[in-house]
Design a protein around this nucleic acid. Structure first.
Lengths: 233, 233
DNA sequence: AAAAAAAGTGAGCGCTTGCTCGATTTTTCG
DNA sequence: CGAAAAATCGAGCAAGCGCTCACTTTTTTT
């Protein structure tokens, strides 16, 4: 199924580096719940734990990933893990919250120069969404696939984030429709249709990798597809 | 989360009726593995088991659904369940196979009168896909959400089905592009983009129900969206 | 270098899981 | 009707789960 040419400890090292800045943010947000004091120790171990749980969950699901698996994959002991989260579900919520926060913050941060023009703004949103989910692919897959089946609070985070993202797109579409740049019958439905086009990039990442379609190519393809459908000519 | 106006035994009865014909097909395919001889008894119980496992899995996931839950929800005993499948994973494969077979058979069965015209053929495919997944929504959600995390064979069924469906669309798109009815840069990518638009209907069924968007409205919306993007005018 | 604090360990506990199998009930049929 | 066949039952088993805590190792401080 997975056919990475590049594998082994070399790849793990690079991956962990990508996790650390994000885990530093998580640490800051949960400083009171995490018992390890020294920030660089805590950040490094959090990165190993979360890299491991995202990787194992992608393979077999979060619930099927045992804490023994996670201990071995992260290099900590079972007891050691519990210095970083109070229980398995708290680990899930930690990850979900980080995804939700980052997604919202990123998409609401369009350059002001662009937001005046709905066409450019929409283009930027599409690219920003795909680039973000490319950078944090395991995180988004996790949030998408595991959100269901957990206590209501965790599920609400996921649903709310999804709706918030859709609303950001709906606002731009409404803007463009009002100014005559877009021809759209139903703004809400159109926003709802754009969402799965963007989600497909990370949900079916393996398929696109196999077909050698790059993030840039996907951005170009999706943008063209959407614009041909809604742009007034 | 779920806010059905119509609930209780009345609804269950109607749902079970919808399951029986499908379960009769499953019984035929697994006659040797199912120990219960009388077809109408076996079909009725299979329907109760599968209705229950799809409902519980949608709530909390297949792996989190225990056989004790399933026994209670289906009205059989724990031991009784094992007259219908040899182990929990076999139950999963049973469902997956039925979904795969039905999807392929349905989409390859376009009326001959339509297949000559790629525009009409594509319209038919979109409508047929959405209508099928509407009729068998719990089945498709199950196949989509639970395929991962299970032994390679089960996962392959899901992946193969997905690819087969995409290929059916790609063929029609290529046909229409060749005859000048469609303007498409990349047929494979376009087919890949149409897929998530169709899947969204059953994956996010709750959202569309809440917004009071009917299957027909969704078919109309998606068809218009896609055709505006690819039709030569 | 000794003491104190912090970080990390892993065997073991109580509980739940998938699954079995002898016992029991229901159905079939001479 | 009554005995054989079919269908169903559910307590019990081994295995594996999340989680704890008395303990050891590492790091910091004095």
């Amino acid at each position: 199924m997975i056919d990475d040419a590049e594998a082994g400890p070399r790849r793990l090292e690079r991956d962990l580096a990508a996790f650390e800045p994000i885990c530093a943010r998580i640490l800051a947000r949960h400083r009171d719940a995490i018992r390890v004091q020294k920030p660089h120790v805590a950040t490094a171990n959090l990165a190993r734990i979360i890299e491991a749980v995202l990787r194992l969950s992608a393979q077999k699901g979060f619930h099927e990933t045992t804490l023994r698996d996670l201990a071995e994959a992260s290099g900590l002991s079972m007891g050691g893990l519990y210095s970083y989260f109070s229980n398995k579900n708290a680990l899930l919520v930690m990850i979900l919250t980080e995804v939700a926060t980052t997604a919202e913050a990123t998409l609401r941060d369009a350059p002001e120069a662009l937001t005046a023009d709905p066409v450019l703004h929409l283009r930027w949103l599409i690219a920003a969404h795909i680039r973000l989910t490319e950078r944090m692919q395991p995180w988004f897959v996790f949030a998408y696939m595991e959100a269901k089946g957990f206590p209501a609070p965790a599920r609400r985070i996921a649903t709310a984030t999804e709706l918030a993202t859709e609303q950001i797109f709906a606002d731009v579409l409404a803007d463009g429709a009002a100014s005559g740049r877009f021809r759209i019958d139903d703004v809400l439905l159109t926003a709802a249709l754009i969402k799965p086009l963007l989600q497909d990039w990370y949900v079916k990442r393996a398929k696109y990798r196999k077909r050698r379609i790059s993030a840039d190519a996907y951005i170009a393809g999706v943008t063209a597809f959407i614009e041909r459908s809604i742009l007034t000519s």
